[in-house]
Design a protein around this nucleic acid. Structure first.
Length: 573
RNA sequence: GCCCUUGUAGCUUAAUGGAUAGAGUACUGGUCUUCGGAACCAGUGAUGGGGGUUCGAUUCCCUUCAGGGGCACCA
């Protein structure tokens, strides 16, 4: 529809001999100002040396010469906006279109034939899966789905640090206390290892001798020269990776590739050494890259340290190269990490683009803020670190508690509390723009009210419930044949529904899931208003058939939209 | 010190340079013998300060104040 309006405006401008106008078409925030609006008159007023309102009226007259049936009227308003009001017929058709498209509603083909890899989550074996990883996963999964909806072949990748000082710190402590009891669950074993990491890390910072010992262990991890260390290493790596898989399962993420630092290290190191001295130089015994020589906003970073071991920077180069090597026709490689990696990534990407200039525009780094906890029950739990897993379980438990007075059996409660608990957490991450820090308040996110994942799920479930009930209702009613009237008035719900596909496109262009979240909340709210004002399954409702279509279109849109956020809609809740 | 980034109702936040800055929460008042009330409706309340560009600025530029991140062998 937007394209159609753009074409109409261009024709009108042509008839008025106005050329090269750069204007925009948008949805006014307030539906009183129409369904689409353009600023063309205000933009052109200056070059045409005419009052914007006068020009708007002129353009309006031109537009009215051949209005399509989808546009009911055109009006000039405010400082010179031209507003388009869509017709009853347009909305009726759009509702029909949504139902026909079904699960495909909202997809577009912007990236048709393209291959895109998205790297996200990136937890490290031997360290806890913390709330930052939860945030990264929710964002990365949603971005993957948005890209997928735009027609791309999507590849999900996870990059995990299975070597490096953090592993040595954990292993140092594990060597002292031994590997844990076989009877523990995977989650408990992983927590045990996480605790060892944190202890080892503290000792590393406070005790010079232990620091030396840990540095030695680190070297042995790289060259695999010590059987005892190798044994603990293999055990710990397996346990933590298995624990991560359990979390991915709950979150609904499935990765196609797992990349490991242990594999990337030699690849990256080789590439770095091959490019001495043209790109990398020796400095104080280390191999560094002087970013500031290429861009004053970059800085120097160490790629191979003075012990001869590759740092994260070198591994990152190995990773980037490996991605393009494994998927030769990769069109875009998106990496999502926390904001603290932003500056460093710019330097690494500069170095990569010097080695392979063609890769520069195929790499995109997206950063997200930190996740903090609001003060409350969750943050002081047993004095332990809040792991991603415990936060997730906390969210699910709170949902379960709320469901106590519902008549569901145990397996239903378990299933629903999992779906709703995950939704509460994901939505509170995805509702605001990814760049800024978020404050997670568990109580609020499972409140089920207003701006929350459960509220959206609840609204969808309610809609579905009407659809289910309608089957029974319509079965043998004498009124079923003459209920096909169309309401004259257009509801807000209809005015939101058709915009979904535009919102998805917008979200893709900016790679920002929160636009979908914001839209879905508005959509749900407009549905609830409609629901509150309309008795759909009633004998006297002459528009029942259309109203049911409207409910169906809403349900489909909400379901597709929530999918893009990585959220499922339960059958009931 | 240098570079990047963020300041919007009490709180959590939205807004490709557009119209009366949009929500949620909290607070106040109201609706309903519920197609699932975990709902709906109404009201109170915000762009850190100061300049500039523009027909028009939360958005762009400058300045100032206040947070956050980065700046050599961690990831």
């Amino acid at each position: 529809m937007k394209e159609q309006i753009e074409k109409l405006i261009k024709e009108a401008l042509k008839n008025l001999n106005i050329e090269d106008a750069v204007f925009s078409i948008e949805h006014p925030l307030d539906f009183n100002n129409g369904d689409y609006s353009t600023n063309v008159a205000m933009v052109c007023a200056k070059t045409q040396k005419i009052n914007p309102k006068e020009l708007a009226e002129k353009i309006k007259l031109e537009l009215e010469k051949n209005l399509p049936k989808e546009i009911a009227k055109v009006e000039v308003a405010g400082p010179g906006f031209i507003n388009f009001y869509l017709s009853r017929e347009f909305f009726t058709e759009s509702v029909k279109g949504i139902i026909e498209k079904g699960e495909d509603w909202g997809k577009n083909n912007i990236l048709e034939g393209k291959k895109v890899m998205v790297e996200y989550t990136d937890p490290n074996p031997f360290k806890p899966f913390h709330i930052g990883h939860l945030m990264a996963n929710a964002i990365g999964e949603s971005i993957s789905r948005i890209v997928e909806h735009s027609g791309a072949h999507i590849i999900r990748a996870n990059y995990q640090g299975d070597v490096g000082p953090h592993v040595a710190k954990a292993i140092y402590k594990l060597m002292k206390v031994g590997i844990s009891d076989e009877n523990l669950s995977i989650e408990e074993k992983a927590n045990y290892i996480g605790k060892c990491y944190s202890d080892g890390s503290n000792l590393y910072d406070t005790d010079e001798n232990i620091k030396k010992e840990i540095d030695e262990i680190n070297k042995k991890i790289y060259d695999k020269s010590n059987d005892g260390i190798n044994k603990i290493y293999d055990w710990g790596r397996e346990v933590t990776l298995e624990a991560f898989e359990e979390i991915y399962k709950i979150l609904g993420t499935k990765f196609d590739y797992y990349f490991f630092e242990s594999v990337m290290a030699p690849i990256g190191e080789k590439i770095v050494r091959e490019n001495i001295p043209n790109i990398f130089q020796e400095s104080d015994g280390a191999i560094v890259f002087h970013g500031e020589e290429y861009d004053e906003k970059l800085h120097t970073r160490v790629f191979i340290n003075s012990n001869g071991l590759p740092t994260y920077e070198a591994k990152e180069i190995g990773l980037a190269m490996t991605k393009f090597d494994k998927e030769k026709d990769l069109d875009l490689s998106i990496v999502t990490t926390a904001i603290e990696q932003g500056e460093y990534m710019k330097v690494v990407q500069k170095a990569i683009s010097l080695i392979h200039p063609e890769m520069e525009k195929k790499m995109k780094h997206i950063t997200h803020g930190m996740m903090k906890l609001a003060t409350g029950k969750m943050s002081s739990r047993k004095g332990n670190i809040i792991t991603g897993e415990s936060l997730l379980r906390g969210s699910m438990d709170m949902v379960k508690e709320k469901m106590n007075n519902r008549e569901f059996d145990d397996s239903e409660i378990k299933n629903i509390s999992e779906i709703v608990g995950v939704s509460a957490l994901k939505y509170s991450i995805l509702k605001s723009s990814i760049g800024s820090d978020i404050v997670y308040d568990a109580e609020k996110s499972v409140s089920f009210e207003g701006d929350s994942g459960p509220y959206l799920q609840y609204t969808a479930v309610r809609a579905n419930s009407i659809l289910e009930k309608s089957k029974e209702f319509l079965k043998d009613g004498p009124w079923r044949s003459h209920l096909n009237d169309r309401p004259l008035e257009v509801t807000e719900l209809e005015k939101y529904l058709y915009q979904f596909s535009e919102v998805v496109e917008h979200s893709y262009y900016l790679l920002e899931p929160h636009h979908i979240a914001t839209y879905l909340t508005e959509l749900a709210s407009s549905f609830n208003t409609f629901y509150g004002n309309t008795q759909i399954l009633a004998e006297e409702n002459k528009c029942m058939a259309y109203h049911l279509d409207l409910v169906k279109a809403f349900y489909q849109t909400m379901k597709n939209g929530l999918w893009l956020l990585g959220i499922e809609v339960p059958e009931k809740m």
